[in-house]
Nucleic acid binder design. Structure first.
Length: 164
DNA sequence: GCCAACGTTGGC
DNA sequence: GCCAACGTTGGC
């Protein structure tokens, strides 16, 4: 498959929000703490520099809140090797890292989040992995068409213009 | 706060 | 290798 590819990253905003990414140096942060093998495989093998990312807030007000760009492809997640870190995993070592992360840079925050409830009403998004029942994957692929539709929704409504 | 869905663990 | 028990995710 060609580049860029498209992804959706979930985050509990109480842990790490799109505003946290906006406030980070260079609007760039590493996407650490992923401890699921399927998501790990995407981070380690599939996601490349230049890929595009939808930033999703889970929980309180589930919604897509912005877009980001992958600026560094998969490399070992150092938080897994830090005993002080809540995501520490003693099975992961520098010689044989178990968990991976990528770096992303924020490109835009939507002025109004696109809530899950709205996304469910869009026929073109019916097939989105995010909308499938019981889906818990925190890093998931998005089709180019789905991605474009999300950006269209973010732009089209006047109060949903994209803030740079 | 509830609970369904899911992933992981571990006894056998 | 099966599967029950358990812990976690995450929408509602």
């Amino acid at each position: 498959m060609g580049r860029p590819r498209h992804w959706l990253f979930k985050s509990d905003p109480e842990e790490f929000s799109v505003e946290d990414l906006k406030a980070a140096p260079g609007r760039t942060a590493c996407w650490d703490g992923v401890r699921n093998y399927q998501a790990r495989n995407f981070l380690r093998e599939e996601i490349g520099e230049g890929d595009r990312v939808l930033f999703y807030h889970s929980r309180r007000r589930p919604s897509i809140v912005g877009v980001a760009r992958v600026v560094r492809a998969g490399y070992p997640d150092h938080t897994a090797m830090d005993p002080q870190n809540p995501h520490f995993d003693p099975r992961s070592t520098p010689e044989n890292p178990l968990w991976y992360m990528v770096d992303i840079r924020l490109e835009a925050v939507f002025k109004e989040p696109l809530p899950l409830s709205l996304l469910r009403t869009i026929p073109e998004l019916k097939t989105m992995a995010l909308l499938r029942k019981g889906n818990r994957l925190s890093v998931q692929p998005v089709t180019p068409k789905e991605f474009e539709m999300i950006l269209l929704l973010a732009r089209n409504t006047p109060e949903r213009t994209v803030e740079r």
